[in-house]
Simulated scan of single mutants.
Amino acid sequence: MVTSLFLFPSPPSLVVNTMSLFNLVALITAGYMEMIGKNKPYAKFCDATDSNKSKDKEGRKLPSRIGMFVFYTPAFLVGLASFSVFPHQDPQFVMVLSVLTIHFLKRILEVLFVHKFSGSMMLDAAITISLSYTVATATMIYAQYLSQECPEPAFNLKYFGLGMFLTGIAGNFYHHYILSTLRKKGDKEYKIPKGGLFNLVICPHYMFEVVEFVGVSCICQTLCTCYFTLGTVFLLMGRSYATRKWYVSKFDGKFGKDVKAIIPYLF
């Protein structure tokens, strides 16, 4: 089979295979829901001033910085703990643990030191997203561990994948930094991003996140991680489409019509 040239065989694990398919379906569904306007209530899509919400529901809100910290910390801890749970592994497995852990560590550091926050998010959204990241990370790591007993693919893509991962994580950070400079201290108004690739797409940080996870898939070379990356592509396409739609409505007549959502000149 062609897949054997690039991927480890699927491990004979009902848990891994079921969770892999579940993650794929869940991410694709989430991307579709974003595209049709049923957005996850965080960041600009969380209306913190909605007077129709009950006091009880208002009480289940978190400051955005804390909510984003909740997103990433459990998955980071899973990655970090895996170095102790699975010691003395081959270089490819160590690389997998490293890039997944670095990905979430970077996110935590950005939440603490880079991002600017102006609102809140719903507690249930924070918990749901956190569980999604944590379960997906644990599944990818366990699938990689089981794959060590399987025949290796004909082509080892880990170094190519590492290059893509580093490119993606650097591009993602750069555009997150640009977003963080748009608002000065005390400024809570959203602005149209400028600089970097923002003149081509409204979500270049998402575009580079896709590059990053394609790199992770090339390092892992497991079907489980490919499913997660494919689902992430659909999710970020939906999220970027919704973000572009939000900017068009927020800045009527001022938002460039040629600026796409996530893929320059195409989408």
Rank of each mutant, 00 (worst) to 15 (best):
M121T: 01
F160L: 15
F267Q: 01
G161K: 01
S84I: 08
M237Q: 07
K38H: 14
K257G: 15
L166W: 04
N199S: 15
F234P: 06
I108C: 05
I178A: 12
Q89V: 08
G119D: 14
I202E: 01
S20W: 06
N39R: 15
K38D: 09
F173Y: 09
G119C: 13
S240C: 01
L97I: 02
L236T: 03
T29P: 04
Y190E: 04
L21M: 07
F113L: 12
T73R: 00
S84G: 14
Y32K: 01
V2L: 15
F208S: 07
G171L: 06
Y142I: 02
M19G: 09
G168K: 02
F160Y: 06
K53H: 11
F228M: 02
I127T: 07
P151F: 00
L123P: 00
V216F: 07
D187R: 02
T128A: 12
C220W: 07
N199L: 12
G161M: 03
L200N: 03
V216C: 13
V216H: 03
H88N: 15
A143T: 09
K116Q: 12
G231A: 04
L80V: 08
V99I: 04
L5H: 13
S180E: 03
G31L: 03
F8E: 00
L200E: 03
T3H: 00
